[in-house]
């Protein structure tokens, strides 16, 4: 097993774990962290893919994609956290409730 494969498998595993956090854990903050773990997993896969290039400098395109992805995920996280705080201030809830549709 090579270095790249190790990280690729780790990416696949972390993606599933993040998905678990997103789907199974009820707390909104856990869900947001789940999304972030999923993002990290995808970045791991991308950066490992970049590492295939022989020589010291890896493929720069996946790196640029990851940097873009990190910025996007920070932006989305910041917005989600603001939304969570607003929800908590308005209603005191920290989970998505079943009853919010038919108010």
């Amino acid at each position: 097993m090579t270095q790249i494969e190790i990280y690729l498998l780790a990416g696949a595993a972390m993606f599933c774990i993040g998905l678990y956090g997103l789907v199974v854990r009820p707390h909104l903050l856990h869900k947001v962290m789940g999304l972030n773990v999923m993002a990290v997993a995808v970045f791991l896969v991308l950066v490992s893919v970049a590492r295939r290039v022989p020589g010291p400098t890896p493929d720069a395109l996946p790196h640029a994609m990851v940097l873009t992805g990190i910025v996007v995920s920070v932006a989305a996280t910041a917005y989600s956290l603001a939304l969570i705080k607003r929800i908590y201030t308005e209603t005191g809830a920290v989970t998505l409730q079943e009853t919010d549709d038919d108010a």
Partner: peptide
């Protein structure tokens, strides 16, 4: 209230 919850559900699914 409902819009905030809907937005939260939306952003989680969409992301």
């Amino acid at each position: 209230r409902a819009a905030l919850f809907a937005g939260m559900r939306y952003i989680l699914s969409a992301l």
